[in-house]
Simulated scan of single mutants.
Amino acid sequence: MRRQLNTLYVTTEGAWLRKEGANIVMEVDRQERARVPAHMLEGLVCIGRSSISPQLLGFCSEQGICISYLTPQGRFLARVEGPVSGNVLLRRAQYRATDDMSRCGAIVRNVLIGKIHNQHAVLARGWRDHSGKIGNTDAFQHSLKRLKRIPHRIMTETDLDTLRGLEGEAAQAYFGVFDQLILVDSPTLRFSGRSRRPPLDAFNALLSFLYTLLTHDCRSALESVGLDPAVGFLHRDRPGRPSLALDLVEEFRPLLGERLALSLINRRQLNEKDFTHFENGAVQLKDDARKTVLVAYQERKREQMQHPFLGEKVDIGLLPFVQAQLLARHLRGDLDGYPPFLWK
């Protein structure tokens, strides 16, 4: 069990969590292993097989502590929370905007401009730092140019199908050369393209786990400003899917997903032994490796960067909350458009 900022992560298999006073206590085999004050805690994430007492469930709901359950692979399973007190006028504005194809397309356009700009930033940073180690430099430079051009084409589009097609074109350019940024020699840590449900190689298993953590943070950010995380713009409604949270995730995947995954592999904080391979081809992170990823993820969130719209430094961990607030302001009519997060 590890507390990072305002979120408590439980990674120990077979853990039993209970309430004692204002504390959360973790037991394994009836032996107390950890005790954390619930004060200022906003989230509890249980990864793998762990159990929570009814008293602690009720306490967390009363205190506004959201509980998320993930599989050992990092796939989201369920979420337990108390009553949601969102702004009904804001949510009505959100629902009207999702039904208005022109407004919906304008928001999707800006989200994708942010996502593709940040994908380009990942490749450009990799070229700047490791150009001498990149094998196919022509293909890499071609992808950089494509990712530079696509946002200009997106700026004039509001048709959702066209925008999704341009997003797919950008993903092909981006992930088509992504493996060249992996600097380790191990063939089991190479990247040959995205795979999910289940991830079929170690790098995809790492990406999926990071995306799940990021989705948890984005959903919490949206709920904190009163938006409905289930009703999105790019990701349309589907039962059980946090569509708006997935929309918000798109802008941060390159920074807190792919870039962080590259750092963990290239710095050898993770290696071949940190992954389990199953007979059906699925791959997942081992328990100790998940802890390593959690620490790195939270350390990255403590770093600061200049927000391009606000013009001031912001903790990376607060960026989803800033973007959620900017989206809410746009939907209320305070901003003419939704300003995406652009990594520089």
Rank of each mutant, 00 (worst) to 15 (best):
P199A: 12
P239I: 07
S195C: 10
L200E: 14
S192H: 14
V184M: 05
A202Y: 08
A205H: 14
T212L: 07
L189E: 05
L213T: 08
G176F: 06
D179G: 05
L222F: 12
N280L: 03
N280K: 02
H277M: 08
L244C: 01
D237C: 01
T215P: 12
A289R: 00
R197V: 01
L210C: 12
R236C: 01
L210I: 14
Q180K: 01
Q284W: 05
L260R: 04
R253P: 03
V225G: 13
V225N: 12
L264K: 00
A245Q: 01
F275I: 04
S195N: 12
E223C: 04
A221N: 07
R196K: 09
E272Q: 13
S243W: 05
L255Q: 11
D185C: 04
D274K: 08
V283F: 02
G281D: 06
K286E: 06
F191D: 10
F252V: 02
A230E: 15
H235C: 04
F209A: 12
E272L: 02
N280A: 03
V231N: 11
D237Q: 10
S195M: 10
D185P: 03
L270M: 01
K273Q: 13
R219S: 14
P242W: 01
L200I: 11
A230I: 15
V283M: 00
R194F: 04
S195A: 10
F175L: 01
T188S: 15
F233C: 02
A202P: 09
R238H: 12
G232A: 05
G257T: 00
H216M: 11
A202E: 08
R238I: 02
L285I: 06
D287S: 15
A289P: 04
N280R: 02
S243P: 10
I265P: 06
V184C: 11
I182L: 10
F209W: 14
L255M: 13
F252L: 14
